[in-house]
């Protein structure tokens, strides 16, 4: 059943934040759904929008749904509607971080659920609901890379990983369709899952390195108009393994280096 989207006001956002912080400390209370409709904690938007409380199989599906639900609203304006994003985060909270059998939840930092204060990209980009919408509203299918997580799948749609962090943290990369296509070419396999090593915190050719290299390339090339295939060619040799070239030699562990062991397992 469709519900009219509203916004949480300052009090609503504060109470929502306090709930999130209690949940992180182990509270098993239900989410404060009453904040969504109470006049004291919420307000109508000045445009009409509706969403359904339905299950989503993935962040990509969630993002596509939101992009469609808000396609009639100007994107740049919607981008800074903190109250609305907080309302939606509360509305879908049980899917963002599902409670286990005992009612406990595994939560990310509060800023992934609650936006407070004036608009600042370096805080807003991490909001899980806004991020899912933004990726699909701005880039369509090419935005899927922003909503892909490495590692073991976790329940719900509230994942946030290194790929999201590195590609969305700078708006000049986030706004570049070319950067998204390049990242997808490098880091997604044919099944659209993340290749091993893509989200390594310090590995050569990782998404963190891609973010750095793209910002360097942006000194001499326009990332918004360059063709993705040309940018892939321009990337340095450390990306060879992800381009489909040979894998780099495996790094020896510190212990093996200390004792002078070779690469082969003993």
């Amino acid at each position: 059943m469709a519900e009219t989207v509203r916004m949480l006001n300052e009090d609503g956002a504060r109470l929502f934040r306090e709930f999130v912080e209690r949940a992180r400390k182990g509270s098993t209370e239900s989410a404060p759904w009453h904040l969504l409709t109470d006049e004291a904690t919420s307000a109508p938007l000045d445009f009409a929008a509706e969403v359904e409380l339905r299950a989503f199989a993935s962040r990509v599906e969630f993002g596509r749904y939101l992009a469609d639900a808000f396609k009639h609203v100007e994107r740049r304006r919607l981008s800074r509607e903190a109250g609305m994003w907080n309302w939606l985060a509360l509305r879908y909270f049980d899917q963002l971080c599902p409670p286990n059998g005992a009612g406990a939840r595994k939560l990310l930092a509060t800023g992934h659920y609650v936006l407070e204060g004036r608009f600042a990209h370096n805080r807003y980009y991490r909001h899980l609901v806004r991020a899912a919408w933004y990726a699909m509203a701005l880039h369509g299918t090419e935005g899927e890379i922003l909503l892909t997580s490495a590692g073991k799948p976790t329940p719900g749609i509230g994942q946030w990983g290194e790929i999201s962090e590195q590609l969305a943290g700078y708006q000049d990369i986030l706004g570049s369709r070319t950067a998204m296509v390049v990242a997808a070419k490098l880091f997604l396999d044919d099944a659209r899952t993340t290749k091993r090593g893509a989200a390594s915190p310090d590995g050569p050719g990782s998404v963190r390195r891609l973010s750095t290299v793209l910002r360097q390339l942006a000194m001499t090339h326009d990332l918004r108009t360059a063709e993705p295939a040309e940018v892939v060619v321009m990337l340095p040799g450390e990306f060879e393994a992800f381009r489909g070239g040979p894998k780099p030699p495996r790094k020896r562990s510190l212990l093996r280096r200390l004792i002078g062991a070779d690469d082969a397992r003993q």
Partner: peptide, 16 residues
């Protein structure tokens, strides 16, 4: 302010 050559495919920055 960026001036971009869009005639090739690499988006070369001509001036900045």
């Amino acid at each position: 302010v960026l001036v971009v050559d869009e005639t090739d495919k690499v988006g070369r920055l001509l001036a900045l």
